[in-house]
């Protein structure tokens, strides 16, 4: 399967197979007017199978969201057909308003205006906890 190389845009690479669509949705890529390609189950030396997202425009991406979904991802910024910048994503220390706390006893369940903030408490197992009630993100 061939997807044409992009001249100016972003390639989100090394996405764990199966997570491409989740990333597409959480980054609201469906709202873009440029071309966006999701390649599922591409062969990968590193991962066996991987997903890739190609965006035909350089846009601002929230790297914290990407890191939360999958810290193994690499983001490549392509300008004039050249890979100008390659960013190895890491799990962010904190994420704000990416996911919601599901604990019905949490203060965020009654005070709607509060930001939903989670902090990374266990990098090895990618455990995020609500900063208010310390419930594990699900």
């Amino acid at each position: 399967m061939i997807i044409n190389p992009i001249e100016n845009g972003i390639v989100i690479d090394h996405i764990k197979a199966g997570k491409g669509m989740q990333l597409y949705n959480i980054l609201h890529l469906g709202e873009l007017s440029c071309s966006v390609a999701i390649i599922k189950n591409a062969n990968s030396v590193k991962l066996g199978k991987k997903d890739i997202i190609k965006i035909d425009e350089v846009i601002d991406l929230d790297l914290d969201i990407i890191g939360y979904i999958d810290p193994g991802i690499t983001v490549n910024i392509i300008r004039n057909g050249v890979n100008e910048k390659r960013v190895n994503i890491e799990a962010p220390e904190r994420i704000t308003n990416v996911i919601k706390c599901k604990n019905p006893r949490c203060i965020t369940s009654v005070e709607q205006e509060l930001p939903h903030v989670f902090k990374l408490t266990d990098r090895e197992n990618m455990v995020y906890r609500c900063i208010y009630c310390e419930s594990k993100a699900k």
Partner: peptide
Amino acid sequence: ESVSDTVRVVSCYADIIAMRHPKEGAPMV
């Protein structure tokens, strides 16, 4: 009234606050 607003107001009247709340994380807020 939200917890945030209540404590902002109470901060004008008191030097220190002791707070109990049925919701987890309210004193952190």
